[in-house]
Design a protein around this nucleic acid. Structure first.
Lengths: 141, 141
DNA sequence: AATGCAAATGCAAATCGTTTGCAATTGGGG
DNA sequence: CCCCAATTGCAAACGATTTGCATTTGCATT
């Protein structure tokens, strides 16, 4: 059976797509594979510099762009701050952002997805993509 | 009976809240009251200059900030472009953005709202606000 | 109607996140 | 191991928005 938790081997995938696997790209891919949060470009840059202090911020931005175009990562522009990224493996989900900590919690509701489709259809539109973000605070108990 | 389509008289409301009603602010309020789209700061500035060519873009930005803080308008950061605004009267709604024209269509789904609440609650959060945007294209028939 | 003064303005310069031009470096196919 | 286009680092440019500052202006007060 297929291991649904296995991360795709982007290094190979990208090389096969004609993308050069350079030192900076290797490092950024590694950081993305190991992260368990939703870092922004600067956070990725900081982590990258620890592994190779010659990496530049523009390369991080360029690489994020490249990975996004290739469908390897997703970019999220949560309100206020800079874009934050996450690998695009796994299934679609939406986000709950903790207003106090900035922490991002993922969730998914098939019901909501269906309702969105119905609404768009009834307005004469096909959904290309959507964005559902809940901004909240931990319930004090 | 109450006229549910009546726009609040922001001029009076603001003055009573200790905000000075200046020439630029009068003009911007007028533009907002008459608009039927979701203009960004530059669009509002362009319309304002026609009524008083001494208005500056920073005043538009400052006024949008002030109105937002006072709850008189809502700011929407749709993907890609600059923030766009709309008066905060009327009931809550979400947005469908036409990817080809940039046109914004408003909709509301009580069912989706309820589902959101349920989800946040089950995650231990209170929703402060949320953002639901559908990006789509007109169905070709 | 004239006065006083904090609030608001216009302008230009600064900021933030991100992109880009360019000369120097490098991956990886031949 | 050569070659050359792809990629890099750097610095400068970018678009949206904010800010410092000297000047103007609402408007509460005489």
């Amino acid at each position: 059976m297929t291991d649904r938790t296995a991360k795709p081997d982007y290094e190979t995938l990208l090389r096969d797509a004609g993308v050069r696997i350079t030192r900076p790209r290797k490092i950024i891919l590694k950081i993305l594979a190991e992260r368990d949060d939703h870092p922004d470009a600067m956070a990725i840059f900081r982590r990258a510099v620890k592994l190779d202090d010659s990496i530049s911020l523009s390369t991080v931005y360029r690489t994020m762009k490249l990975l996004e175009d290739r469908g390897a990562i997703q970019r999220h522009a949560f309100e206020g701050g800079p874009s934050r990224f996450e690998p695009a493996d796994g299934e679609h989900h939406d986000h709950l952002i903790d207003l106090d900590s900035g922490e991002v919690i993922e969730f998914h509701s098939e019901k909501i997805e269906q309702l969105q489709d119905e609404i768009a259809r009834s307005l004469g539109y096909d959904i290309v993509h959507h964005r559902l973000e809940l901004y909240g605070r931990k319930k004090r108990r």
